[in-house]
Design a protein around this nucleic acid. Sequence first.
DNA 1: TACGGAAAGATGTATTTACAAAACCATATT
DNA 2: AATATGGTTTTGTAAATACATCTTTCCGTA
Lengths: 361, 361
Amino acid sequence: MEEYKYLAIVEWGKDYIAKEHLQPNDRFLSEKELCEIHGVSRQTVRQALKCLENENVISRVRGSGTYVKSVAAQVSEQPKRVGVISTYFSDYIFPQIVTGIERVLNDAGIVMQLSTTHNQVYEEAQALRTMIANGVQGLIVEPSKSALPNPNMELYREIRDQHIPLVFFNAKYPWADFPLVAMDDEAAGEVVTNYLFDCGHQRISGIFALDDIQGHKRYGGFMKSCIAHNVRTAEKDVLWFATAEKSYIFKYARTKLLEMLVNSTAVVCYNDELAVNLLRFCRENDIKVPGDVSVVGIDDSKFSTLCDVPLTTVHHPHRVLGERVARKLIEQMNTPDDAGEDVIFRPELIVRDSVKSFDRR
Amino acid sequence: MEEYKYLAIVEWGKDYIAKEHLQPNDRFLSEKELCEIHGVSRQTVRQALKCLENENVISRVRGSGTYVKSVAAQVSEQPKRVGVISTYFSDYIFPQIVTGIERVLNDAGIVMQLSTTHNQVYEEAQALRTMIANGVQGLIVEPSKSALPNPNMELYREIRDQHIPLVFFNAKYPWADFPLVAMDDEAAGEVVTNYLFDCGHQRISGIFALDDIQGHKRYGGFMKSCIAHNVRTAEKDVLWFATAEKSYIFKYARTKLLEMLVNSTAVVCYNDELAVNLLRFCRENDIKVPGDVSVVGIDDSKFSTLCDVPLTTVHHPHRVLGERVARKLIEQMNTPDDAGEDVIFRPELIVRDSVKSFDRR
DNA sequence: TACGGAAAGATGTATTTACAAAACCATATT
DNA sequence: AATATGGTTTTGTAAATACATCTTTCCGTA
């Protein structure tokens, strides 16, 4: 028994409150009484009381006495908090991902602190700083503009120094050494493009996000498939866009887009959101899908089934991914200083109605 | 000057770290050195250091020394945290509401802690308890099963006792005296029903949620309109359902539903989600909307425009409501003990294609 | 009955002393 | 060169004492 006296008094005090059924705002024993009960000095009692005060079990009022605080505070100690930082959470596939995260964290009795960056690195910095200052026990982050140089390296280094567990999802910064949970974006780009070739398409163009590692990887898969099928893609077969301008490209790149659509029989879209917008663009310009041109998306979002031509796309594990991210973080929290390996989901093609097939086998 | 010595040392220590440009993990002065510098006893120095440790400015290692902690912790004090408890957040109109809340809180530098109850009072209790123990400075709550007796009265009383500001949205418990921000549900029910009468409908039925104050109020508006138009609604013209069974009623109440649809020319639905499901039910049973039967919803959710027959519905301010709730809470946090008045949004009819008009004026 | 003030009792601040336990460092040993 | 060892430094625990400051209570007076 090498326990300290003041810690013994802390435990005794908690038991006492429970045993005597003391309610919030009930009077607790005075320092003098505690001294006599335990036969210790007042300093020792005061140290014990300070602990109980920090744990929110009692509150002390100078000149008046010591009082019991909330019941809730007594029973459960402070639950863990985890920060979740994503680019968005109300649109597209994000609600499902965040639901998955929330579910697992909730089951583990962990509180989720949510913040969104709108894909702005400055907002990401703000969110990270707030979370750190707030004392979160872990972080789940979807990087903003992951393909561009990022001014937040310092912050991630500090997170590393402070041994705060962190898991990325959807994408990771190449220089930040934290585990990632994501879909295999390159394979996804490859799978859809392969499918188009299988359907007999030869002239295939693509539209990809520029500022996003996912965009680069999906483009990589697209390229890989083209090369494997001995098709050379020219610069003009690919349209790059910045995520912030995703809604505007159909205006300012109208000419190039129309040219692309005329010169190809199929288009690989960075994601479903873009694909749905492309469908509308085609409708407005009297281009039949999949009659005149075939369209494929990636992510299997809700909109891919709700739009007028159900989209052929690649399944994104949405909610399962969210659950896996959260579990990964909990693993990291339980085994600190363990590097942790990436979790990459295999893509799975979902065939719907937006691709025309030239073959009849 | 009646300042205490230890507080003076606390301030001096902060200045010292700033002036000497001490970095995280740099060594701070030892207790002995501080004693000599300030000419005080070691206990006094220790009390000062304890304060700095609580404020996360330094950390102490027995046998080694005192060290400076993160810069982030020094600069900005701990930001405020607010708990947001809603029934869902990934479906229906909730993403927009939560986005509105998040936006305002974020602008105010407040961190949002999110928890969902899935409309289960037990999960609500769990969430509330966690939030309180977590020391949130405010709460935004959407009640679960607001029309049924609720076992969480004690918790809300405790929140009141601890003077934690709280704002309800969408609905409030009649016995809990906190401000509410919501749409005028009764008026919403009245507005759609009035519109159906205006279009020449006479036999109107309704489907409403049973366990939810919003359901009761919307039904109230429906009734009010019927009475004003001298139409007596019979028991069999109204179908009640429990929120948990919203997807199943089309199976187990199939007969009653079909009967209702045959006997009436229009149906008032509790909300858009239900209305969309009813549209599908009609399609599956070869009932034309709005040819055979007209359907109206409430809430103006995204699905009301995406489904095959765009829904006539009542606009719910979604995001604006979310923003208003958050601002209301911030008001409450700034002026404690101010009762705070409810904010009720007027409903606004959105006419689309799901109602047939018999009049030709 | 209402008010004021003194007394009692509570927690807060400060000093001094002593020993305990962990970390650190330089020297000596293997 | 690696390992032990012991002394030094540093923070942690504990006690005894004194006074400060605030609250509550109670009693006497107007």
